[in-house]
Design a protein around this nucleic acid. Structure first.
Length: 288
DNA sequence: AAACAGGCCTAAA
DNA sequence: TTTAGGCCTGTT
């Protein structure tokens, strides 16, 4: 007689979906747009993380994608988050006119631009300045652990990203204590403006890219690069073209002087992401 | 040990 | 209007 385990605690359904053509978990989560998902296995076919106030585990199989979630949650949250309905294959074809960009696309065809939460993305890229990726990750973790809400994450406790209201109540020293350094005052300014409605994400949604950038730049610590990242990674403003040191290097190395976003077309931001990730993984290095 | 890391702010011309 | 320092912290 067998004993059948009956652990019904936190019973979650497993949703299996046909996977879009362009969809790689490591490309998506490790291309520098998102810092709260981690691989669960060495092959990087399984990832877990927190977004939109929820914990998510997912696994890529050959032609399918397994998500530990319900169909309903997928429809209302994750479908949008993963930019599910945007056709990256069609988008990529528009990039093949440029040989270098084509190489980048073919090297990392599984990149997608996530549609992340506005407030969290704003904080993420404020924190990103003068920082490297491991440190951005650890800063986000300690902020969430300290001020976020606990969530059940498949037997472990994980933490959501704290709201703007929550951060707005903190003192600069409290954030400084989490090693955020000179960025602490920027986070406070951002939180206060968002919490009181001075910065209104709904309004920004409807603005032109140019207008949206200048609106976000009213926040202390938000310059052109940070604003561009926020708009690209959480507002789906695909024409936003963040230029950091890596992109500067790319433009200087492979493109004629004066080349800017307009060369790459209306989806320049997506092009930027392929190029950026390609260069960072050292494939763009001519000395190879 | 000094420089640098996915910038931005401020002060000075 | 443009340019040079400085900035928290951690890693190399």
């Amino acid at each position: 007689m067998k004993i059948i385990p009956t652990s019904h605690t936190a019973e979650t359904t497993l949703l299996t979906l046909p996977c879009p053509v362009c969809f790689s978990l490591s490309d998506i989560f490790d291309c520098g747009q998102c810092f709260r998902f981690y691989p669960l296995n060495k092959e990087k076919t399984k990832y877990a993380g927190v977004a939109c106030g929820r914990y998510l585990e997912l696994e890529k199989r050959k032609n399918s994608l397994l998500l530990r979630t319900t169909q309903q949650e997928f429809d209302t949250v994750w479908r949008d988050y993963f930019d599910w309905d945007f056709d990256y294959q069609v988008c990529q074809e528009q990039f093949f006119f440029d040989p270098h960009l084509k190489d980048a696309v073919l090297s990392f065809p599984g990149i997608r631009i996530l549609h992340q939460e506005h407030w969290e993305t704003l904080c993420t890229f404020i924190l990103s300045q003068n920082n490297n990726i491991p440190r951005i990750r650890s800063l986000l973790e300690s902020i969430c652990r300290t001020y976020g809400d606990p969530l059940e994450g498949n037997g472990r406790t994980v933490y959501s990203f704290p709201s703007a209201q929550r951060i707005a109540c903190l003192s600069q020293q409290e954030l400084y204590a989490l090693k955020t350094g000179f960025r602490a005052k920027y986070l406070i300014d951002a939180a206060q403006r968002v919490a009181c409605g001075d910065i209104d994400f709904q309004q920004i949604e409807g603005m032109s890219t140019e207008k949206a950038i200048s609106e976000l730049r009213r926040i202390k610590g938000v310059g052109l690069k940070v604003a561009s990242c926020v708009l690209l990674f959480s507002f789906r403003k695909y024409d936003c073209f963040p230029i950091d040191v890596w992109m500067k290097r790319i433009l200087n190395s492979y493109y004629p002087p004066g080349t800017d976003a307009s060369y790459f077309g209306p989806y320049a931001g997506i092009a930027q992401q392929y190029l950026f990730h390609y260069e960072r993984n050292n494939h763009g290095n001519m000395s190879l």
